[in-house]
Design a protein around this nucleic acid. Structure first.
Lengths: 125, 125
DNA sequence: TGGAGGGCTAGAGTTACTCTAACTTATTTT
DNA sequence: AAAATAAGTTAGAGTAACTCTAGCCCTCCA
C-alpha cells in the first residue's frame, strides 16, 4: 500500500525529478515522510499523478492544472466549473487529434515524394 | 508572389517573432530584403514554414529539423537518410494519436463521473 | 566497514518560444 | 505639414516545463 519515489516513477512513467517538481508547483498533494524525511506514497497519489499527466498531455499548463486541483479540493460546489474545464480540454484533445492526423497525411505525402525521387535516382545510368 | 512578414505569419499561423526565431536557428532559409532591410518572402518560403511546422507539431526538436533541412540542402544522396527520418516521425505521430485517444477516453470517464456526482448533488433535499 | 543504491535539497541549464525596448519607415488622418 | 498608426528591424530579457548537477544523508548487504 506504500510506495517509494522510484516505484511511483516507474508506475506513472514520470521521473522522480518531475514528481518533486509537480509537488513543488502545487499540482500534486504533499506526501507523508518517514523518519528520514523520505516521501511515502499511496495508491491515491498514483491516481493524482495519472490525472495530472492526462491533463498535461492535452497541453493544459501546470498553472491551470493547479487551479483545477484547487477547485477539486474545495468541494462539490465547484463541480460545474470543473465539468466545464473538462469539456474544454476534451475539445482541445479532439482538435489535437485532428491536427495530428493532418500531419500524418503530410508525412505520408512527403514519404511518397521521397520514394518517387529515390526510385528515379536508382534508375540513373 | 512576394509576401510581407505579416502575410506569412497569417498564412502559416506562426507569429513574426517565431518566424524570425526559426530563421535565426537555421531551420528556415534566409529571405531576401528590400532597400529598407525588410524581409521579402515568396511562395516557397511558406512551404518551408509549413514543413517545419509539420515536423515541430510531431515534437521533433528544432536541432533535428535543422539537420533535416541541411540534409535536404546537400542533395539527392541524402534521400535514404531523410526517408528514415520521416518514417521515424510517422511512427511517433501514430503513437501520439494513440496516446491522445487514450487521454480522450480518460476525460470522457472523468466527465461521466462528474455528471454522476452532479446529478446526485442536485437530488439533495 | 565500505560501497552500492536510493533519497533529499538548492539551484543551474535547456528548449522553444514569447515578449520588451528602442528604433526606422510607410501610410493615413487631421 | 504634423501627428498618429501600423508594420518592420535588432538585441536581449523572460517564461514554462522540465531536466540535470552537486553535494549531502541514510540504509542495507556482503
Amino acid at each position: 500500500m506504500a510506495y517509494t519515489m522510484k516505484e511511483v516513477a516507474e508506475r506513472t512513467g514520470a521521473s522522480p525529478h518531475t514528481l518533486r517538481f509537480y509537488e513543488k508547483e502545487g499540482v500534486l498533494p504533499i506526501p507523508d515522510r518517514d523518519a528520514n524525511g523520505v516521501r511515502i506514497f499511496n495508491e491515491h497519489y498514483i491516481d493524482c499523478v495519472d490525472t495530472v499527466q492526462a491533463l498535461r498531455s492535452t497541453g493544459l499548463p501546470l498553472a491551470e492544472i493547479k487551479q483545477y486541483v484547487e477547485l477539486y479540493k474545495s468541494g462539490e460546489q465547484t463541480l460545474p466549473l470543473r465539468r466545464t474545464m473538462l469539456v474544454v480540454q476534451k475539445n482541445k484533445v479532439e482538435d489535437q487529434i485532428a491536427r495530428l492526423i493532418k500531419t500524418l497525411e503530410k508525412l505520408n505525402y512527403k514519404l511518397a515524394l521521397v520514394d518517387a525521387q529515390e526510385s528515379q535516382f536508382s534508375k540513373l545510368p
